[in-house]
Nucleic acid binder design. Sequence first.
DNA 1: CCAGCCCTTGGACCTAGGTCTTGGGGTGCG
DNA 2: CGCACCCCAAGACCTAGGTCCAAGGGCTGG
Lengths: 218, 218
Amino acid sequence: MNELTGRTDGHSGMIKVLIADDHPVVRQGLRTFLDLQDDIAVVGEAGDGEEAVELAGRLRPDVLLLDLKMPRLDGLGALARLAGSPVRVVVLTSVSDPADVGPAMRAGAAGFLYKDIDPAALVQAVRAVHGGQVLLAPEAAEAMLGNGPAAPPSPAPLTEREREVLRLIAAGRSNREIARSLAVAEKTVKTHVSNVLMKLGVQDRTQAALYAVRNGLA
Amino acid sequence: MNELTGRTDGHSGMIKVLIADDHPVVRQGLRTFLDLQDDIAVVGEAGDGEEAVELAGRLRPDVLLLDLKMPRLDGLGALARLAGSPVRVVVLTSVSDPADVGPAMRAGAAGFLYKDIDPAALVQAVRAVHGGQVLLAPEAAEAMLGNGPAAPPSPAPLTEREREVLRLIAAGRSNREIARSLAVAEKTVKTHVSNVLMKLGVQDRTQAALYAVRNGLA
DNA sequence: CCAGCCCTTGGACCTAGGTCTTGGGGTGCG
DNA sequence: CGCACCCCAAGACCTAGGTCCAAGGGCTGG
């Protein structure tokens, strides 16, 4: 929409930010600091993931600063529910658990930062993410690279049989039913399913079904 | 579109029929007989489920006469893949296996008949189905009623927690992940999932996910 | 205060789903 | 011809998903 000047002009380009953290003082701190920037407007605060998802839908912020550890619904859960939403989500966590990085990025986060970040850098980060960039704290980046390329679902071509199986998965059929429909052993179907999962880069049949319907392969 | 006179007029209301059966002589028999009717036009023939799905998409018939036992992809499989298609599918089977009726109807069949049907009755059936009716051979009807009301997903209300779990299922998360996100034990999640499946009237998480996205609960 | 609902957890149990590995049957190529 | 490669199929094996059953705590309304 607008260029990446790192700073949009006065009023029309205000970056709307939503803050989600279960700790009120953190929210307050972030809010007052971010509001000082004349290109950023904090439009809301959420105390848990549930609220974050709800407010993200209503307030339509450009950027969501999201804590991971929260009651009711945590950051990862909220992230999952925001799939497909236009909001740019920046995970902002205190505890540095490398195991969270992969799932978060795979779930569509646009950034992964730690709370010890320099405030000025955070502001820069918000602008960068709003501009379309993805950015990771150094430690997070390391964690990502460590466990391999998590998100390269290289469009490996499916074989005829595999497409067939995928379509039936997307129709909600069980392996047994698929086997009957294709007149092969259930074991065979499992093999095909396994290959489909690998090629699509997903972990189970449910994700495969979702993938299929979203990409019109249904 | 047109009234249910049981017989649409001359040329504009021709009922386009596609025949799917792996036995050529059966196809030939059906075709010649149906083509004698001046309100019915057989627009194509398929020798297996694969072909049936393909031709249904290309020829856009009004009615598909579908055999169950077929190579490559059987009737049930074809039916599953035609979900959402406007084609009215009439299952036309030779073997009378009551166990097939439920799945077929649940998969969206508009009719379930046996091949020993009186030809004149078949023609009537094609017209009726084209007119929007659903009809079952007596034996099929019995089989349906026998195994309970297969398709009354009475919209039992989900509890707050259950909706939450459903949304996460629809996001493709595993029970373990959902448990982490909601900060509860995995067993708890399983209980919720189980309840959701029951209330939605589906058999597994994949179907639940599909249900959720289709009904906008995602 | 008790009844009833919701949420939670646990244990025991069974089955569907997935992974890994192997082998047969094409087909293309040196 | 022999080799390599791919698709399909299938057996052995392990794990996640789901069912059934039971029970305790919190909240609400009669």
